[in-house]
Write a protein that binds this DNA or RNA. Structure first.
Lengths: 207, 207, 207, 207
DNA sequence: TATGAATGAGCATTCATTCAT
DNA sequence: TATGAATGAATGCTCATTCAT
């Protein structure tokens, strides 16, 4: 007979996770202390441990519940776009917007998480799942474009998808360490131009 | 063993740096202990401190003396290639080879370093210098290609260079966390194809 | 055992301070380890740090809260004595008793503290405050004696007070290093005799 | 067949001892490092160990060869003075001058040494020897004054001597920690006045 | 003999985790 | 349930001492 409702517990769990993300982003996983997180969440250390058995579980939950949802999120937000090329462009825009506006912490969390993945197998697996999910999604778009004759026929969807995602995460990670001269919008536009010339057959002749 | 030759001291310094790189790559900066590094170097803890005043200085030296030399290294190794397009392709190949064969630890070091850069201003500056140096170099190649009429005239060299390097480091970082399905060679070839279609004006008509 | 009463925390703080005093007295500040203090207090190392942020703060607290209270203590314990001469004599007795019976560790603490004061400005300031406080008090007694015509008119209260206190602390410090032949009582009596002949005008004629 | 002359070795030994005194005075025994001393002496660490087997031996030598010579020094410098009272006054002057001009470091060395004596039996014994030597000498003067009828007959030479020396060392030690308001000259004069009124029978009637 | 690099035990301090209240 | 005091293992760094050169 719990005193608090499951909803309340869920809300508190989320609050702790948000606090942990904030703190991990600011300090990195190793440097962040459970006390920092408790303070950020406005709770006591003990309370954290009621929701997450160890500090490592906080990181893992973030990987799975924040980063891990990126594939589903992308799918949902680009589902309405019919044309594969438009959908691909939408993905690039979405990523740029996410990095700059919607979830500016995600890039940093990605970096912090990658660093932890070196050591921690479960974190590594979580990251790979996210990458694989996103790559599958993008590869699907490309494959569809190829199938429909919209894209050049000789592209390898999986490889190009991996390339795109690597670039995206590379940008995220540099952007996030405060690299001085990264103009996200310009980079997005150049990327789209590059993809257009690569994927769309003879576009220059017509346009 | 005092009054050793400067050469001996330099060799030992390098050995310690190598040991530190090994250990940082394997565990990450925070988790690695100075004892680990000493053990890896076959020295005592105190000996480490004769060459590097703090653990942080080890990291910083790695950033500056390993990662930071990448621009000069790339410049040297591609200097002979005359044609800008060939030189760009050479860079991609070089990077792929470096990641896989020559300096397989560098990618990991890059990741570990990025994670530390979140916290450590000096490390961050070191990374930015490396990125800026590489970006300058690649942008120079592209600008030259544009100037010579070899590349499409409307590309923005700096933006494309940043994009390329982000992708490269993104790949490095994923490759390094052991992402399962990254086929470096295939990715390199696709990237070259993409660049060709983007940079070279109407190459398809002739070739 | 959280949410303990402030009284409990204060008691524990005092216990730690007592333990620190014990250990510092026995080993000196530099040689004493925080582990020693924890053991003496029957606590863990970590517990010490909940009450005092650094080892140096333990010393400082002792200087301020043990030694620094001497002026107030002396004032309180001799306040009732009306006659300046009697009060002075009372001070000498008090000091002798304190050294031998009441606070036998204080002399040692004084020594250990002085040694630390060479290096540590805050400790030095604490010691000077104590000395100045005691000197003010004793000088006040002497000045009052002079003003009332009870003492010889040409004595300089501040200088004599400083002299007295130097002697007192000199005795304390030697007593404490275990100097073999210091007979505290005899020394106190001789001091009183010396003061009598110096301060009281022509007492020998009458008595 | 030593390469260097015994005289050279003795000179070097003295130089090391001087350096050690300088450093101990500035930092205290525990905080001073053998490296500090070597640097101050312009030698290598190893050289120090050729002359003194351990760091502790440096301190001990200082106690014995610097502080321990005080009794002989005082005896020598006051030997010419015939009258016991004059000789006593001379001692006070000597002490004041020594503290301020001749050997300004001695006070500090005394303090540092006392602190070490808490722990170190040999140092303690050295200090006690010095104290006993000085006390014997002063007590001898007083006893002589009594015997000659120059001093009040009821003084206890040993106790008064101990009192005087405690005061002297107390002053030294406070002076040395930088106590702000200690006017050595004024204190010396007051002390002489106090001693005169105590020791010399009815001086007031004549002077 | 002199040097100073190397050793490694030792210490102040931190922090994940526990558990009495 | 929540709190936060207590625990104690772990870590970066120092320094007396040794000894190869």
């Amino acid at each position: 007979m719990p005193r608090v409702s499951p909803a309340h517990m869920e809300r508190r769990r989320e609050a702790i996770l948000n606090a942990a993300m904030e703190v991990f982003i600011a300090k990195g996983y190793q440097v962040a202390t459970v006390g920092d997180i408790a303070q950020q969440a406005g709770l006591s250390v003990g309370a954290i441990y009621r929701y997450f058995p160890t500090k490592a579980d906080l990181m893992l939950a973030l990987v799975r519940e924040r980063l891990g949802r990126a594939p589903a999120l992308f799918a949902r937000l680009t589902a309405r776009v019919e044309d594969p090329w438009e959908r691909l462009v939408r993905c690039v825009e979405l990523f740029t917007a996410a990095l700059r506006v919607r979830h500016p912490g995600t890039g940093r969390l990605l970096l912090v998480t990658m660093a932890e993945a070196v050591q921690n197998g479960e974190v590594r697996r979580g990251l790979h799942d996210r990458f694989a999910g996103l790559a599958d999604y993008v590869a699907g778009i490309i494959a569809e474009g190829v199938a429909r004759g919209r894209f050049r026929p000789d592209v390898d969807p999986r490889t190009v998808a991996a390339l795109l995602l690597s670039m995206a995460d590379g940008v995220a990670v540099y952007w996030v360490t405060g690299a001085p001269d990264l103009e996200l919008n310009a980079m997005g536009q150049s990327l789209v131009a590059m993809l257009r010339s690569y994927l769309l057959p003879e576009p220059l002749l017509k346009e």
